[in-house]
Design a protein around this nucleic acid. Structure first.
Lengths: 221, 221
DNA sequence: CTCGGTTTGTTCTCACGTTCACAAACTCCT
DNA sequence: AGGAGTTTGTGAACGTGAGAACAAACCGAG
């Protein structure tokens, strides 16, 4: 028997689509807050900043949640996407490295509102251990094992300097963490089965600089 | 005459390649700091976390800067990539919205070290106008026009709440800013010719959650 | 019930990005 | 000088993603 749950989820959703689902989710939340109960693919696509054909194709991977001739029920579709992504459940998260960025992340409201709960803030520097950030007190990095075990944490966030990132990642993996969001400006390597995503603030600026330079060159030519 | 400068730059570099060039640049900087003077595509690819064939193809768009049988001169290649991206020059940048994230961005050392100079921090809230962050004092948002004019700013960073983002973007565009890095969790629309890149902290976490949920489903099946 | 108008879901085609595989080119050793 | 060993740069195959276009399905009016 290869039976699945009653709500059979599609087997393989393309990565590009997965990356856009959170955008649709946010657009739907905005529409819902504005009191919109129904929307067409055209409207939703505009709100999400994508092509309507692409939107429909993306949604088709999840199932058939629209009604032809009518459109989509905003709240229903929102729930379906949230369930598909997994943000209907609670995700305990640890943040390691409570510098400027760690502070910002700990205070970021967008996490909590999407099911992410910051259960611990860790830092290797003892001087930070008396601080309380966003209602959570900063604890020694060595508490990682215990926290992960007690709270069932699967997702870790690295906001340390570049040099510490690989060590932190190793310790996280050793504890059983299987998803890492890395803000440190360094490439970290992890064993297969562990997902790593990277956010590098300066890379995005450099990409803008490249295009900006191109525009300037075009003018002077 | 369609002549160009003596160092003729390749006409069109694929977007995917452009996005990776900053990664290579950082890897080369790390190698250089470690005292490495030469590296093969295999080594550099490992340091950057990509496939070596992809690395070589990416570099081939810039020109032929390696030596067959030997590899790449670290400092030479580093300079060539930096020049191609445009980070050999100075990029004045304005940051609007000095909340938690704005603080972190203003203090982020990765900007300055790559030619980005934060010339102004702006916030609409008068209570923040006496603050000094990272050596730059916070000024009223209405000073935007003057600052952009005086400093020749082409790149703006939005770190405001979602609701303010579109207004800020409109004002930036009106001032002549042509590249925007948007950290606010909202889709902003700008006229053609203006580049916008988005960084959304919670989207990355949601993508991780999706894969994490998948792993868990696989186990229980 | 039927018909016109609307919107989704899907198929098809094209463009882009990735990877393989190998010829060209370089160094070093004999 | 010549040949063995390395490594780059690139052509070609492959896979993934984007967009256009259209049939299927739904609503509402008459």
């Amino acid at each position: 028997m290869t039976a699945r749950t009653s709500t059979e989820s599609a087997r393989d959703i393309p990565e590009a689509t997965v990356a856009r689902l959170p955008v649709y989710l946010r657009a739907l939340t905005t529409l819902s807050e504005q009191g919109t109960s129904t929307c067409s693919s055209e409207e939703l696509a505009a709100a999400a900043g994508v092509n309507s054909a692409k939107l429909r194709k993306d949604l088709s991977y999840l199932g058939s949640y629209g009604t032809r001739g009518v459109g989509y029920d905003v709240d229903y579709l929102r729930y379906q996407i949230a369930r598909e992504i997994g943000v209907t459940q609670d995700w305990p998260v640890v943040i390691v490295g409570i510098g400027n960025l760690g502070h910002a992340l700990a205070n970021y409201s967008g996490f909590r509102s999407r099911g992410f709960r910051v259960v611990a803030l860790l830092d290797a520097d003892p001087e930070r251990h008396d601080e309380v950030v966003a209602g959570v007190d900063v604890r020694p990095f060595d508490d990682l094992e215990q926290i992960v075990r007690d709270s069932g944490v699967a997702i870790g966030v690295i906001a340390t300097p570049a040099l510490a990132a690989q060590d932190v990642a190793d310790r996280m993996v050793a504890c059983g963490i299987t998803s890492i969001l890395n803000f440190a400006p360094s490439v970290i390597s992890v064993p297969a089965g562990v997902d790593v995503r990277k956010v590098d603030l300066s890379i995005e600026l450099q990409i803008l600089a490249y295009h900006e330079q191109r525009k300037a060159q075009g003018e002077s030519a």
